[in-house]
Amino acid sequence: MKNKKSLLLLLSVVLYSSQILASSSVSLLDGYEVSVEQESLKKGATIYYNLCRMCHSLKYIKYQHLLEIGFNEAEVNALRQEHLMNKAIVSTATPENAMKMFGMVPPDLSIMAKARKHGPEYIYSLMLSYVENSEGIYENKIFNGIKMPDVFSYSIAQGEQEKQKIQKDAADVASFLTWTSDPHASDRKTMGFYVIAYLLVLSGLMYLVMRRVWRRLD
């Protein structure tokens, strides 16, 4: 009887922990998921640097942090030019110029994935919700009156292949921005697995100690 109980406990622990690890993926629509792979993050960072950085800053990310997602020193040096390694990544446009162009300052993207409900999915969907209206001007189905242009040109994409390429790019950007909003996420989950495993062991031991103490009452 007792052996069955401990076996059951062990089984539940294994199931529980594997469930935690499995459930840690965030879905993005169109079958994509937020990736924590360096390849995807690096790709997303590159797209950000070329497409988004004109208007959006990333003020909580420093150039040195890019080394953590697969860029080597030479690549980072090429990106940062004369900026120091420990300098934050700012947008090309100054806030004043942005005000003149758009009437508002494009928001910083460092924590955008946490600043919106279902952030990563929101970012992904926003990129791909552009349509061309009857006058040939872009509109966004999610964010009515958005000032941001259709940077991925999704609204004029022709054919499935082109659309899918843009979707992949958007997924990479969403993954990258998920990383920027929570760079320690992988460490956190790994540590969590070991901490909870340890606590389950300790609980088991503590349970046995408690039982042996309380047996004295009989």
Partner: peptide
């Protein structure tokens, strides 16, 4: 007697526990 019983009742194994 399962593992638990031995650990709980045997005095030597109690201290070990």
């Amino acid at each position: 007697k399962g593992l638990e019983d031995n650990l709980v009742d045997d005095p030597e194994r109690r201290d070990f526990l």
